[in-house]
Simulated scan of single mutants.
Amino acid sequence: MSKKLEMMKEKIYILEHVYTEDEIDEIKFIGVFSSKANVQLVILELKDKPGFKLHPVECFIISEDVLDNYGWKEGFGW
């Protein structure tokens, strides 16, 4: 890529629900949000719903990133 991405540095919040069952990690991608406050509202809405209420609220995982960011910039492999 000869041109660099213009990064706005706009912060985003990614919400997932993660737990282990029968030695298998179960990961549910829930969404991407513009604020931590919106994430907290979604957690409050979901935590008592079927499936989610069987696991502690700590299973909701919030990650922060910025728009237009990407991984694997150096590639992968040996």
Rank of each mutant, 00 (worst) to 15 (best):
E16I: 04
Q40V: 09
I12Y: 04
T20S: 05
D48N: 14
N69S: 13
W72L: 13
Y19T: 07
N69E: 08
E6G: 07
E74N: 15
D25G: 01
D22C: 06
D65T: 12
I61F: 04
D65P: 01
S2H: 12
F29Q: 03
F76M: 00
P56V: 07
E21G: 02
K47N: 09
E64D: 00
K11W: 04
K73W: 07
I14C: 01
I24F: 14
E26H: 12
E16C: 04
I24A: 08
E16K: 15
E10P: 07
V32K: 06
L67A: 11
K47Q: 13
E74M: 02
P56D: 05
E74P: 01
H17S: 09
T20N: 03
I14T: 01
T20E: 05
Y13E: 04
V39Q: 00
D48L: 12
L46E: 04
L67V: 08
N69I: 05
F76N: 04
P50I: 07
K4V: 11
D68K: 15
K36V: 05
K3V: 10
H17F: 15
D22L: 11
W72G: 05
I27P: 00
E16D: 09
G71S: 08
E21K: 15
K28I: 09
A37K: 11
G77S: 03
P56Y: 13
M8C: 08
S2K: 15
